[in-house]
Write a protein that binds this DNA or RNA. Structure first.
Lengths: 236, 236
DNA sequence: CGTTACGTTGAAAGCTTTCAAGCATCGTGG
DNA sequence: CCACGATGCTTGAAAGCTTTCAACGTAACG
């Protein structure tokens, strides 16, 4: 049984769907922090759903520069892109201990054939993923370092809340400042200085892997945060 | 009948699929250059496939900054995100005269139910779209203005070639430098100067809406271009 | 022929990066 | 128990890439 069934915000599956998912599932993986699930350039014949833990998707350029594409949290589908490309075009790495559900890609076709409702869910997740990327890209293209950071923190808080990983204005953030910098396209030094300034101003506090939002209105204002609501979320 | 059937590189549909697509289709739209198909914040109950012409997807921030998310070319599916969100989170605008196929979103379910192969195609397109976004984000996060521009031009040339809109090293580029700047997260002035430098160096020439690539190796080198090939492309 | 949209220039201002250390925390081994 | 290496966070200053500001040039168009 899936631990995500109990989290509010996820769509409830029918019995038939649940039965199918049980046989669609091929097992589970556990990852330790820092371990990689997918290696850029490698091949994988599986899809995954995150059951627990934090991770991130990233691309590394030949010159060594790493861009974090987004963070993956419970309920996220990982590896759909590999159905399009032979080789993975990005890596996926664990930030905390992670637990994932494995689905053989070879069975994806039967999911589409026999359970169109689940197929639609997959598409839903893909479209949502694209929306996340849109937001992110806009952040990099249009905003200053300070705004980007505010946006990232708002975003992470929002996503963590969705899956029950945040209490109010506080949450466990298992990233280093380097991760934040790589996600925002900023240097580590500048990220650090910007963060400190926001901290001095009493906006947020990020110490020892724990983020506390002290002034939500101010944070959202500098992030240009637009609380977009989404429909009930499916997961597979 | 669809003009894209003849373009090599697109998957061939079966008879049954073609029959379904014919009744799935609800009509066509024509757009003049500059017209918008979707307005950010507006609602639309349709999906579209581009049949001809260039356009772009963009997001505009409250402060007026516009980020071009990507360019849409023939074969691209537009509006899938609206199945997730009530309001469109981005706009779509025509760069040239455009012709699009209209599909009512209300019929999307029947596509998934009765034609899983087409549903898989939709997912394929969504995953590919995500890949494009990944590349783009990495460009903004990791590269200098010069590299980004080289990348954009390589990219546009590549995509135009895929759909038969480029002859060798030359193609019609219906964008202004402002568009390029907005896509790359750069200022117009800097984009212009960077472009001129590349031009002086004999790498490319972009005059009057026509792009000529004079030194492909140099362009690809500064773009860190990695010729990733994809499997045969579906379209709906 | 005035207007408008787009491209071009030069210079100053500014945000970010790079470079170079220094500090703190933590787990490990002597 | 303490030294030591590793990882991550802090700082200060200089260098650099980009932006902003302000005009000017040009081609297309009614």
């Amino acid at each position: 049984m899936c631990p995500l069934n109990e989290v509010p915000g996820f769509r409830q599956l029918s019995c038939a769907e649940r039965d199918f998912m049980r046989q669609f599932k091929a097992g589970e993986v556990q990852l330790a922090p820092g371990q990689t699930l997918l290696q850029q350039g490698g091949v994988s014949d599986s899809l995954y759903t995150v059951l627990a833990g934090w991770g991130f998707r990233a691309k590394t350029l030949p010159d060594g520069c790493r861009q974090i594409l987004n963070f993956v949290l419970p309920g996220d589908l990982v590896g759909l892109q590999s159905s399009v490309f032979e080789e993975a075009q990005h890596s996926v790495e664990a930030l905390t201990k992670m637990r994932l559900c494995i689905f053989p890609r070879s069975r994806l076709w039967s999911l589409y054939r026999d359970h169109p409702s689940l197929a639609l869910d997959v598409t839903w997740l893909a479209a949502r993923q694209e929306f996340l990327m849109d937001e992110n890209l806009t952040s990099l293209g249009c905003r200053s370092a300070r705004e980007r950071l505010a946006f990232l923190l708002s975003w992470l808080h929002h996503r963590a809340t969705e899956v029950g990983l945040a209490e109010d204005n506080e949450l466990e953030l298992p990233l280093t400042q380097q991760h934040a910098a790589d996600a925002l396209g900023l240097s580590l030094v500048h990220t650090n200085k910007t963060l400190q300034r926001m901290s001095r101003e009493g906006m947020v506090e990020w110490k020892k892997g724990r983020l506390t939002i002290r002034d939500t209105p101010a944070l959202h204002a500098t992030a240009h945060w637009d609380p977009t609501r989404t429909a009930a979320r499916p997961f597979i």
